[in-house]
Amino acid sequence: MARQGTVRNDVLMREEIDVSVTVPMSAGALYPLVSAATSTVENLVGLTKFTAETCVQLASEASKSATNEVLDRVVPPLFSAIISRVDLTEIVLKNVDVNAIVAQTQLDPIIDRIPMTEIADYVIEEIDLPTLVRESTGGVADDILGLLRFQALETDNFLSTVVDRVLFRKKTRAQELDQAMDSKDSKNL
């Protein structure tokens, strides 16, 4: 044991002597090598890590896409096949308290989205409100005015018909007027 130790001490001593002699010359040459080796190792480790991460990501994306594709193809027909065999309305009516949902619904935003003015205009036009108002409030004055105008119109028709016939006109003015009156497309003045 002591002998070995002695030998080792000798070796160590010799190494120390060697180092003390060679260090000033070889340190400068070793540094670039060491740093290059370190950077290469670091790069290799980074590359490996990146490759591994990318592979994992790609595999994950591919599996996701494949799954989605399969689901897109399988689920809709499956779902529609199920739905077609089920009466959803009945299920909802049986199991869902619609009144409770309606009671909790905020109506104001819904009302804000409804075109109230247009609905009002539509109703006014559909029930012909102007005519109703005219008939209820117009009264005698409007009737007399309308009567007077129509009577004058009829007299005009009579007079012009007589004159047009005497003058052998093919189409009388009264006929033109009657034609205009009977035509369906009304003018909007």
């Binding site: 003015t117 004058a152 119109l153 005009d156 028709n157 012009s160 205009a180 009156m181």
Partner: peptide, 26 residues
């Protein structure tokens, strides 16, 4: 939306003769 409604207050029978030349009696 926002367009003011135009109501035709002229009696229906007389609507199509508007703009036609008026006769002597009137």
């Amino acid at each position: 939306a926002g367009e003011p409604l135009k109501f035709n207050t002229i009696p229906e029978r007389a609507r199509n003769i508007q703009g036609m030349t008026a006769g002597f009696t009137s």
